[in-house]
Design a protein around this nucleic acid. Structure first.
Lengths: 251, 251
DNA sequence: TAGGTGTTTTGACATGGATCAAAGCGGCAG
DNA sequence: CTGCCGCTTTGATCCATGTCAAAACACCTA
């Protein structure tokens, strides 16, 4: 069991790249950790965020159980977070894109709680947690914003609990599509046309559904004129109709 | 709609009590925010945590949408957190007991994301967030531990996502009972006999099940000799059997 | 003590989504 | 170009849990 883990670890190290990160020039600045910081504060943060790391599609940024020492800001790319249960069943607990922070689950117990797997070739900025702690004792804007990002992760997860606990299949999928749309729009992409980076099975895992159910819902939405789907490409045709499904409950 | 809210708010204010909190003497110290602080640091924290507030059974500590300004440490009692969806459906997102922190969901957006409702008469310590921020810039042990508590809340929630996303009804309920057992034990209560503070419906809401399903699972566990149940009183008879249900997956 | 209200249990039945199965599609390697 | 493999779609059937209903029970107040 330990052998393949090690091998994977090393191959990850091979693609590790040390590049100057430079939050100050990053176009994701306002979505990411430095949001709201002054120029001077940005420079301090830049000194801390000094390593960029490339992760190839299919590789892990970190895996459950590994020692926690850094959090990661996604510079480009797309990740899934996955928790594996003792008996082998697993669940996708989230999808993350540029400007979002990964790894905050590790602070509590000093080791990561989930795997973060790249769904496309990606680049992340490493932020050593101990230095982030130090710096956020000095830069209150950073402290504040870091707390906000943790808190928003808590709120995001309770939203997912709502999906999983009370919504029916089609509502979950409508909510998922609208969520993707809104986050992509915030990053300057089209809100109405996008490529999904994950498989139907991964969507299903995230939403507590089987891949066939996801596929059927897509077909249904297509037939109802709400979306156009071609494999991983999705075009939202009737966003209002989609919102109705997800806000409009039991008929 | 606004009227009853206001009335409720005021009745909460009536039971607001200002008492010296004194973490230094609190027997939940090691489970709560001050865990791991030195004597001197504890005194600083005591200066900040200066208000205790009594919440009667059925009342809210805070409600979704209210302005966030404090987090709360539960001194005694029991709470549920509940998110209400636009269409009226709601979900219990957690149960909280002594030593646990409530309200961290409010930091991200400046207003609370859920209701925190007392399931028995309770006492909480109010911790003004702005002063906590200040103090944790000075006391790194406090900073560290506060981050840990936020992170653990993230991990706890991904555990619930796992419950909701991949487990079947009886597994969820076994997991729920074992979780209660373990948290009560950590607080010095019996791990094998306890009173549930919540109804079957609230358990069901938390676990994404209907109250009848919860009731049937309890009956089934009783018939199988795993537990004894009498209304809200639960006695775990065969803890190993219970663990088998929850760790033992698809047969 | 009696009546009322909210909670729990249990039964009978319905159904949404899972499961099983097969075929279609698309991309990659040889 | 061909064959393979992973992903997706669609159909047929099954079953875990939801829904509806009724009775028992517990607790509170008068």
């Amino acid at each position: 069991m330990a052998r393949p883990e090690l091998a994977r670890q090393q191959s990850t190290h091979l693609v590790l790249a040390e590049l100057k990160a430079a939050c100050a020039n990053c176009n994701l600045r306002e979505l990411c950790l430095p949001a709201g910081l002054s120029e001077a504060e940005l420079d301090q943060l830049d000194a801390l965020v000094n390593v960029r790391r490339k992760i190839k599609r299919g590789e892990s940024l970190y895996r459950a159980g590994e020692t926690f020492d850094s959090i990661y800001a996604i510079r480009s790319g797309f990740f899934k977070s996955r928790v594996t249960y003792e008996d082998g069943r697993d669940q996708v607990t989230g999808f993350s894109m540029g400007g979002e922070i990964l790894g905050m689950d590790g602070i509590g117990q000093g080791s990561h709680n989930c795997d973060a797997v790249a769904l496309e070739d990606s680049i992340v900025c490493s932020i050593p947690y101990l230095r982030l702690e130090e710096l956020s004792r000095e830069v209150s804007g950073l402290q504040r914003h870091f707390h906000k990002m943790m808190s928003r992760e808590i709120v995001r997860e309770s939203g997912v609990m709502m999906l999983l606990g009370v919504m029916r299949a089609e509502e979950r999928i409508a909510a998922f599509l609208l969520n993707m749309s809104q986050r992509l729009e915030a990053r300057g992409y089209s809100a109405l046309e996008f490529h999904l980076r994950m498989t139907r099975e991964e969507i299903g895992s995230y939403l507590g559904l089987k891949l066939e159910t996801v596929s059927r819902a897509f077909s249904r939405f297509h037939a109802d004129g709400l979306i156009a789907v071609d494999q991983k490409f999705v075009k939202i045709v009737d966003i209002k109709g989609l919102k109705d499904i997800y806000a409009h409950h039991v008929s």
